[in-house]
């Protein structure tokens, strides 16, 4: 007997490759979206800081905008710099 696969449609779930499940700012799942968004993934992406912490981009931007003096990572209090 010879079995030949002509096509294979699989089912997969996508997830962010991050060292945590939830955003440290909004507490929502990374694979979900921030409270201001409706659609996950492309529409509500993650960003990483040089400190290696990551957040929903909308969450960290809001956070940074609310900081008057210095831009610090809300998790580790180091200066926040976007990872290149």
């Amino acid at each position: 007997m010879k079995v030949t696969i002509r096509s294979w449609t699989g089912v997969a779930t996508w997830r962010w490759v991050a060292n945590d499940d939830n955003c440290g700012i909004c507490r929502m799942a990374f694979d979900g979206c921030c409270p201001d968004c409706k659609l996950p993934g492309d529409d509500c992406p993650l960003v990483w800081g040089q400190c290696s912490h990551c957040f929903h981009i909308h969450c960290i931007m809001k956070w940074l905008n609310s900081q008057q003096v210095q831009h610090l990572c809300p998790m580790c209090r180091q200066e926040w710099k976007f990872k290149e």
Binding site: T4, G10, W16
Partner: peptide, 25 residues
């Protein structure tokens, strides 16, 4: 997918899906 999306990966649900096969006896 990883290349396309960057920082994102897939977890397969291997039991789900649909397969088209030829069987030759």
């Amino acid at each position: 997918f990883e290349t396309l999306k960057g920082n994102r990966t897939l977890s397969w649900k291997p039991h789900l899906g649909s397969v088209n096969i030829d069987i030759e006896l």
